[in-house]
């Protein structure tokens, strides 16, 4: 509860003190930041721009503006199939990784047990292993066991590298929960099961949602591990990489730009709604 209070207090804190005088030095950081944003955005702008390119076979040089690619995003062979595969892999891996990772995160924060250090190490290692090694290890395993490569092996690999990120994200949320909340639920006659579903889980939802989004974006955009574990199965990043040598169809840019705009819109909307909500929540306090 004090955490909530602190947050409310932090947001209602006095407005930042006005600086006595603007000096030239004060501008260095904002200007630098603006340049950094330009740096971050230019390649994205290129990607979006080239989705409107009237490209022939290769989409490397600007040949003129057209809407054809957007009218017919599946016009190039395989591009939409690869996209659909990526969505499928992303959704399945996210569901599995989020479920497994959330449970582990709760156990790590709420219980003291033998082997906790080992568990933490097991979570940390996949994150500190380069993708190429993860891919090579999984491929070595699949080759040894003669597992046919395809959708299943790709999902198995994606779940692996997503779990650790889910654990870390959800763990942060669980640690920020006052353990007294669960005790209060137990004290108010809630069985452990009821306490979890009525108190812990609802309070973890923001963390779990963040973890799921992270897992999905990691999975959806993964190339290296996918390349090792997919055999002839094609995901969107793999399709783009493979076609890079003979020319990427502009439809790939269309799909990528579409995803970009969609994700951006959702995230900005969440930000604005969250801000409006926190403002509304704050309002009544000031009247007291």
């Amino acid at each position: 509860m004090t955490a909530v209070l602190d947050r409310v207090e932090a947001t209602t804190a006095a407005p930042p003190a006005r600086r006595p005088r603007r000096r030239l030095g004060d501008l260095i950081v904002p200007v630098f930041a603006a340049l950094a944003f330009v740096y971050l955005m230019v390649p994205v702008a290129y990607t979006v721009m080239f989705s409107f390119n009237d490209a022939g076979k290769t989409n490397l040089v600007w040949r003129g503006f057209t809407l054809d690619n957007w009218r017919n995003p599946c016009g190039a062979p395989q591009v939409c199939e690869a996209f659909a595969n990526s969505l499928q892999v992303g959704v399945v891996s996210t569901l599995v990784a989020t479920a497994l990772g959330t449970l582990v995160a709760i156990a790590l924060v709420r219980f003291r047990f033998r082997g906790r250090a080992l568990t933490n190490l097991l979570i940390f290692l996949p994150m500190s292993t380069p993708e190429v090694v993860l891919g090579a290890a999984l491929l070595a395993q699949f080759l040894t066991l003669r597992v046919p490569l395809g959708f299943g092996t790709v999902v198995a690999a994606h779940v692996l590298f997503c779990i650790s990120f889910v654990v870390v994200t959800v763990k942060a949320r669980v640690s920020s929960l006052d353990p007294a909340l669960e005790e209060a639920a137990a004290d108010l006659y809630a069985s452990p099961w009821q306490a979890f579903w009525r108190v812990t889980f609802p309070l973890l939802i923001p963390g779990i949602a963040a973890a799921a989004l992270l897992a999905f974006s990691l999975s959806f955009d993964d190339f290296i591990v996918t390349n090792f574990t997919s055999g002839s199965y094609t995901t969107f990043p793999k399709f783009v990489y493979v076609s890079a040598t003979r020319g990427i169809p502009p439809q790939a840019n269309v799909i990528s730009s579409f995803m970009f705009v969609l994700a951006l819109a959702i995230v900005v909307l969440v930000q604005v709604l969250g801000y409006a909500r926190s403002k509304r929540l704050r309002a009544p306090r000031t009247t007291q």
Binding site: L40, P43, L60, P237, I248, S256, M259, F260, Q271
Partner: peptide, 22 residues
Amino acid sequence: LVLVVAPFFTSFILRTIAWKQI
């Protein structure tokens, strides 16, 4: 912060290819 992570919303490989063009 959204702007910082925004590049992740497009394909990693397409962004790298954009660098090749730039």
